[in-house]
Simulated scan of single mutants.
Amino acid sequence: MPPSPAVPWFAYACLALSTGLVGSYVGLSKLLLLAFPVFLLAWLRFGIAALLMAPWVKRAPEEPRLDARSRRLLFLESFIGNFLFSICLLFGLQRCSAVVAGVILAGIPAAVALLSWLLLGERIARRVLAGIACCVLGIALVAGGKSGAGETSALGALLLLAAVFCEAAYVVIGKQLTARVSARRISSLINLWGLALVTPLGLWQALSFDFTAPALSDWALLGFYAAAASMITPWLWMSGLARVPAAQAGVFMVFLPMATALVGLLLLGERISGAQLLAYGLALAGVLLATAPRRLRA
């Protein structure tokens, strides 16, 4: 029997850290929304990250030049996975608690499986369909519900659901990009596209914004948000995604809603109800059904 391939522990660590960081800044961004309007916040995030990642833009000598297909994929990766995801997420968070957002975002692995079927023609097994059904049921339980931080609107739930599919598209497109472009360069280029896309809206809100109003702690949190959201997490995610299949990488999305809910519970003073706890369990069960392999190999 041929020897089993080595377990890519480095890739697993990158994927787990990336999704954990995303979940943490999803919760913390609720604090930033109290100090900055949505489009200005997104513009500042991309702008700060562009300065931090300036050395990553240049192509490495051993890296091939970008072809037309790679350029299109980079634009779609940024437009769907960066720009639209950020807008849907931030507007959705204004209308939902972090705990509810965590339950809805738990549907990302099932959404990855669904998009793989629609866009890549992959066959979806019955257990994956059951996982999608669990995630949808979990989302239905929290849509329009209440949390310790206030009421969750149907619009907020729909915006977060749109963010789920934006992030799923980010995974599917990113897997294709990592075959030709380095993780660092992907991160820097999609951030530049995001900056270009949000600049008109960001400038519009900047003209009427009082930049002396946010506290020093708000600016410090903004710096962490920019570095984590646009620089560290994409680099970690693309580094891991380059070494494992996309479906297997989807398993690690479970850390995103867990971290989001933990931030809401521990730092934002939110509470979780029995219905939300049940919804959380259904969403996590959906993750396991949709992404667990049929069997474990030695």
Rank of each mutant, 00 (worst) to 15 (best):
W117S: 08
R126K: 10
S78Y: 04
L40Q: 07
G81H: 05
T233L: 06
R69L: 09
G27E: 02
A110W: 14
G20K: 07
R180E: 13
A143M: 05
F224Q: 02
G194E: 04
W204R: 09
G286T: 09
L189R: 07
A242P: 02
A11G: 08
A247M: 14
S182Q: 01
A149D: 06
L256F: 15
G264H: 07
P55H: 04
P245N: 04
L236H: 12
M231V: 13
G27V: 01
V38Q: 02
G145A: 05
N191I: 10
L28W: 06
L93M: 14
P234S: 09
G20T: 15
L51M: 11
A228F: 11
L105T: 13
D210G: 00
L114A: 13
M238I: 02
P37H: 05
F79E: 01
R271G: 12
V112W: 12
F83P: 08
A183Y: 06
A49H: 11
V136K: 06
V128D: 12
L52E: 03
A179W: 07
L189A: 10
G102F: 02
P8K: 06
A111L: 10
L192I: 11
V22S: 13
I124S: 11
G250E: 12
L161A: 07
V198Q: 05
G47M: 08
V26A: 13
R243N: 11
A50T: 10
L90V: 11
L189T: 09
G194A: 08
G138Q: 08
A246K: 02
I190R: 03
L284F: 15
W193N: 08
Y25L: 05
A220D: 04
A154N: 04
L189G: 07
L268M: 03
S29A: 06
R184C: 06
A226C: 05
T212V: 03
Q276H: 05
A290K: 12
A226Q: 03
L33R: 00
A125S: 04
A283E: 15
V254E: 15
D218E: 10
W43R: 07
P234A: 07
R297M: 13
A125W: 03
R180F: 13
A229F: 06
L158G: 00
G223Q: 09
S217C: 03
L256N: 15
T19N: 15
M253Y: 15
R71M: 09
L177F: 07
A279Q: 12
F79N: 00
G148R: 04
G223W: 05
L105P: 11
S239M: 01
I139T: 13
V38D: 04
P109T: 07
T19M: 15
L141K: 01
C166R: 00
P234Y: 10
A292Q: 11
A157N: 00
V103P: 15
L34G: 08
F85M: 05
G144S: 04
S208L: 05
I80R: 00
M253D: 14
A206W: 03
A242S: 14
F75Y: 05
M258S: 15
P61I: 00
A35G: 00
D67E: 06
V100K: 03
L15D: 06
A60H: 08
P5K: 00
A6G: 12
L221Q: 02
L74G: 09
C135E: 09
P8C: 02
K175W: 12
D218N: 05
L155F: 01
P37I: 00
L84P: 05
V251I: 15
A6C: 08
R243K: 14
V103F: 14
P234C: 09
V263I: 14
L119R: 05
F165C: 01
P257R: 06
I48S: 06
